[in-house]
Design a protein around this nucleic acid. Structure first.
Lengths: 165, 165
DNA sequence: CCGGAAAAGGTGTATATGCTCGCATTTAGG
DNA sequence: CCTAAATGCGAGCATATACACCTTTTCCGG
């Protein structure tokens, strides 16, 4: 069975020359496309360490902050709370992080395990290689500019500070 | 049943003060975080049109290029071929795009349907609002700088031109 | 014309993300 | 002390994204 209902060429609609086909570049589309590209580079680099860039990022955030509640960690990472929970699943399964009940019975605290710290140490050299390659190919000044701009983009997030609740 | 094996607070490992907890900002992590933030803004904006930003982007690319083969479209979007196929699924299901057999029996051509063109027209005003808000809050010069930098980031993609096969 | 390499796609599997809804706990009022 | 609102999470569902592996078609050399 075909995944798509394939029909014979019947010209679905006129090619190109559509409203909105042009217009200035979509900031979000460009950002997403660049993210896919860069994620590939980093994922390829740290693959030998058995981690994805996203996982490495989470682990590093935890290393930096220490035990953190789910919702708080999600807020820091600008990640949906439930998405974060699921992103933690494979890390919990591999014993890289632990999730323990907080004082408030409603909360859960996420923390790095020893294996988690070890995983960071193991992946760090690979991450540094990727980061260094970006610096080498893009140049430190441009990278600094990019990071700064990304910071401003982040502040556009619905629910970012500076917006009446 | 709990999703996680919750244990009582037992201090999994020493908080913070881990190697790699600091280091310069991860370019990829920052890019991904900003992407989540901006995608929210755009998704919220075009939601009334019943599209996600990713879907709108795909439709626009198709409008610009006319019927395109799967692999070619994936290359243009810097998207994995199989990921693209699956991203098309909901659009095909809703009749916004059609997938027809190409001359070469191995290929499939993706094209916008009339409904697809209509969907773009319907979403365009919403997208423009989002884009305008970004321009207003960030400023056109910074946005131009950002777009230019993203272009350079894209060229870091493994498999980008300028790399011996 | 044949056989194998190359090209185009699909499927299965796994992670990444976000929404809606429902459950449990805590806290604010009265 | 009891109840309603607020808070913190998880589960189900759907899309987004990539990798490994397999099938079908072409293409090419002999």
């Amino acid at each position: 069975m075909d995944r798509f209902h394939v029909t014979m060429p019947s010209r679905a609609a006129s090619p190109a020359a559509s409203p909105g086909a042009s217009s200035p570049a979509c900031a979000c589309g460009r950002l997403r496309r660049a993210t896919r590209a860069l994620t590939q580079l980093y994922d390829d680099a740290i693959a030998p360490a058995g981690l994805h860039l996203t996982q490495f990022s989470l682990l590093r955030t935890l290393a930096l902050r220490g035990p953190t509640r789910i919702t708080e960690l999600a807020a820091v990472a600008l990640l949906d709370r439930t998405a974060l929970s699921r992103n933690l699943d494979p890390l919990v399964a591999r014993g890289l992080v632990t999730v323990v009940a907080g004082k408030d019975a409603r909360t859960r605290e996420v923390a790095l395990s020893r294996a988690g710290h070890a995983a960071i140490r193991a992946a760090l050299p690979h991450w540094k290689r990727a980061q260094a390659e970006v610096v080498r190919r893009l140049g430190a000044p441009k990278l600094d500019t990019l990071i700064a701009l990304l910071g401003e983009i982040e502040s556009l997030h619905p629910g970012a500070p500076g917006r009446a609740a």
